[in-house]
Design a protein around this nucleic acid. Structure first.
Lengths: 215, 215, 215, 215
DNA sequence: TATGAATGAGCTTTCATTCAT
DNA sequence: AATGAATGAAAGCTCATTCAT
């Protein structure tokens, strides 16, 4: 792993576990096994580093979602895919995703605006799928917006507790959450692992992970 | 409001919005309209203040849950109550609850252990209700533990976005979430506002809020 | 013991053991079992308290020396008396004397000048006795000034280690030091406890101690 | 002089004159002509700096004494050497020695224990010489322990008043004190400057001073 | 590429002191 | 006589960042 990669990895790890404000430049340097002065060869300011992590993480998520839902009209299939992708990303990349979910308030106003815009762009996919499903009468929910927020929080929570060392395989996790989400939307159908095969492939490709069950 | 109360309120507000590490003693002093030296008449260290907030918040939640579920054997009723209480607490006290949910990592090891023990004690109520419902064949979930975590995250998320100024009344919010939760648990039944009346009363009592629809 | 006395005693104890700068107002308050605000009923500033302790301690020493050497022309007798008084004062009042000996640098310039003047006045008794003894050819020392300083340091050191709980009685201590001092001055004669009886009485009177061997 | 050396020199000077608690970080920075932040490149905590000064000072003293008394059986010679070394060290390095003698109480318990152990190791040389002299009937003292303490205090006092700018040369000072000490021990013999030549050399070597009469 | 040295600004916390009650 | 409340100033120490080498 190059020095630049070590810096980024250190930032992801520490921002995720100790928070942006709880992580010092010296902590980053120690984690990356560099001097604190050397860090500045690989980053701008500390905030730049945070922005970069958040931006690339969200862009990847948007990229993955765009790829995985392209050409699918069925809202149920799209929803299943969105949930699976979200959960897989949060389980496989808990560092990045926790940073995105928890450290938005640490950004300065202009950077926050850009990050929030990306997040909104991402959430549009969810909103659209729910709206379409409601219009098609396959989803039944009195409060589509609230339901969307509830689903997103439910799925994002995975990053807080999932461990690849535990008994639950990634694909089972994704399958389970996809089912829960469809239940929430009033469309309780079984989801099979093979329905999500494409999601796993997209995730592996976008996040550059080895293609295997548990990444 | 006394100085001591102003200090606590300032801490809740700022810890919730800017995070523990992102909040300086001077920020607290300014928010509480006191000098930073005077703060120390009303608190120990900054961490003591955090611990106090987390502890009382969790104790209240446990207290509320104990009161509201006492004497109820039906797992569906208990679950409905747990969800409603959780959502109401997070919507009515978003500051405290966000601090509890987000700042555990800011605690020193011994304090963290105590807080986590309280949180575990609270979650036992959820685990028990889900287990009982599954045993009684009214809940259907292949992964009870995962489902519990998913529900908790879903409900806690309310503290991140709910606003009493929005169109959604607290009781509608609670009703909606109770329904979503029962759907997640494979027991999709309608929930009526009157089913949750007792919850509203317990919340009003435990958090010392005025008894009215929107608190 | 009155509050005023408790304040003074607390200051003597803490200034002696932790130093003036190492002792906080809150330490004094705790030791005196008063609130820190109440302290200020019994003292001016912290420095005033220090000055008062040093001044009364030195004035008592001067008073004692004046009383005990009055009417004695013999330099050997005077020297014996000076040493005995000094050692007894330092052994019986180690707090006050340590403060006087160690905390002069903590004083502001004007206060220091006054205290140093008193100390000089006291040391004049030693200088005079040594000069007279040298003139009378009973003391033999090539460096009278150095010898005086050496003797003073030797005797003051008692306050750092003597304990009344140890095996050495005060009168034996004084006798021993008187002999050592006369040896230093080239006049090695035995000193008997009864030679110092008057010293013990003067010390008991000036410091208001119970008249007994060990005070 | 390097920055690191300036920091140490500043600490010695200020701790000696104003005391540890009376010296602020900003005072040290000003004296060392560095910013207060920069100080922390060259030290750990303020206490670490104090410990370092005390430890190296005592280790040097022990080193010097071991070197200078090696191979000497005669208690009189050893005593003469101990006194001369002690006095020379205190006169030539008044800063370090005053810090060692006066600031032990400023140390935390574990650091104090280590420093006191070193001091005890040093004082063993004195105790041994006095015991041996008494056993050989060349020293006559009824209270060997008290006498040792008296001598140490007498000699340490030099650091409080000796100035190389005064009329007294270092070697005369040492000679005079050696004679006083032998008088105290009941062995009043003349000491010649040439008896102490080796001591001067050892001091010059251990403290890295230019070899000349007045250093 | 890498870092030791450096720093102004800031951190949390304590300081000695005052004052209304 | 006694104190809780209050504070400006200062304490020891760390911050993110720069720069010469």
């Amino acid at each position: 792993m190059s020095s630049a990669e070590r810096v980024r990895a250190a930032a992801v790890k520490l921002f995720a576990t100790k928070g942006f404000h709880g992580t010092g430049i010296r902590d980053l340097a120690q984690e990356a096994e560099l001097s604190s002065a050397t860090l500045y060869h690989y980053m701008g300011t500390k905030e730049d580093l945070l922005v970069e992590i958040m931006t690339t993480s969200l862009l990847r998520l948007i990229d993955a979602v765009a790829k995985a839902t392209a050409g699918s009209d069925d809202p149920v299939v799209r929803m299943r895919t969105l949930v699976a992708l979200h959960v897989l990303a949060h389980a496989a990349q808990p560092g990045e995703t926790r940073v995105v979910d928890n450290e938005v308030d640490a950004l300065s106003a202009p950077a926050r605006a850009r990050v929030v815009a990306l997040r909104d762009e991402y959430e549009r996919y969810w909103a659209k799928a729910i709206e379409d499903g409601a219009a098609a009468n396959v989803f039944h929910t009195a409060q589509p917006t609230v339901t969307r927020l509830a689903l997103l929080e439910m799925c994002s929570g995975v990053a807080r507790w999932y461990s690849p060392k535990g008994p639950l395989k990634l694909e089972d996790l994704a399958t389970h959450y996809a089912e829960l989400a469809l239940r929430v939307l009033g469309h309780p159908v079984a989801v099979r692992a093979q329905d999500l095969r494409q999601c796993l492939e997209v995730v592996a490709q976008v996040w550059d992970l080895p293609v295997q069950e548990g990444f």
